[in-house]
Design a binder for these strands. Structure first.
Lengths: 118, 118, 118, 118
DNA sequence: GTGGTCTAGACCACG
DNA sequence: GTGGTCTAGACCACA
């Protein structure tokens, strides 16, 4: 499933996770486009797209000539975006339709998810 | 989420759901490409693609000049394909990572899913 | 391979084999269109096409109101048609290209064919 | 015989032959759909179909935005597919029935095939 | 009537 | 630049 998603979104997700986990603190600088591209083994343009995407969402912001920085309210932004996508963007309904299609019960889902977390 | 998926796959999913639900019985005929295209308001070629896809998966088969028919073991096939995609195709892990990212607990997921089903 | 060939040609082949084997003697009547259709579990039009095809090749001929009959020189006709198709119709080259593609040697082919005949 | 096969399959065969022959090495890139379409003098969509077909068979794979690449085990895949089609798909039996129908002996087949190869 | 193939051209997301 | 999808329309073989 991940491999079918656009690479730039996968990278954006990683950045967001790092922000939420505290690896990338608020107001701190995120890796440069070239750094991240080299590290992720992808084209520079792909990372550019990632950062543009995150900037549009207010997760990071740009200081001309200095690079991109984590927004002070990035964690809240990310949480809000993800919840909105999940509950209002149809993600939840799609996921539940998949659960239903393979015949999973709520109890089974809960158990599988517990295992995943644990 | 659904709306971003290719139409031909959405149609394939609908056909599969109809098969699982018993609306399209085993060995029975599925709508002709032209019928389904008209009904679904899409181009004939899109339905052709759907049926090619389902045939490759062994869900339907072709009788020359007569049309497509539901495979006798279609229900099992569909179940197998969907479970494999879910458990081995990384779908489950991706979904659970989303749950985790927005801070859902197993209990919360179970409750939401119950509501969805009910 | 057989199942991908047009049904009317498969039936034509069967008729030809019956003629060569002597089951359908020269000047004898071949089954009526309806008989053969019922027996072969196919549409009447398919058998019509078979007979038209065989008639064009001079293997059978039509007596109005009486049905189709095996031509007196049907065996020779069939032999000639088959050889021509094989040697000049590109059938041989295609077959040999398949042999080559899966790495069969002449000796291996000979052995497999002997087994098939035996 | 070849000329009656769909173009997209003929092109697929050519690609496979190039892979087996080493002209298209494992992990290497295959021509872009546009390149191959121009070179083969066919519509782009026809090549798209060829590549979809080869991808389903695991012969090539896609890297997003970069193009299609030869699978690392492509040669084995191709060999397996071709052998399966030949031995289990009824291709062999059909071919041998043709040999028999025109009265070829194993020795004759071997000789003709040797000539073809040589 | 059925599906199968092919073309032409468009628009899009992605890297 | 890459492929992915979709449309429109054509022609064909087959049952």
């Amino acid at each position: 499933m991940q491999e079918n998603r656009p690479i730039y979104l996968q990278i954006a997700d990683r950045i967001c996770n790092d922000i939420v986990a505290g690896n990338l603190p608020a107001e701190g600088r995120v890796p440069s486009v070239r750094e991240l591209a080299a590290e992720s083994q992808v084209n520079v343009n792909t990372v550019v797209r990632t950062y543009e995407h995150l900037e549009r969402d207010g997760v990071i912001f740009n200081r001309r000539g200095l690079g991109y920085f984590v927004a002070s309210d990035a964690v809240e932004r990310i949480s809000e975006i993800r919840r909105k996508l999940f509950f209002e963007g149809g993600e939840m309904d799609f996921i539940f339709s998949r659960f239903k299609a393979i015949g999973l019960t709520p109890a089974a889902v809960s158990e599988l998810y517990s295992k995943y977390l644990g």
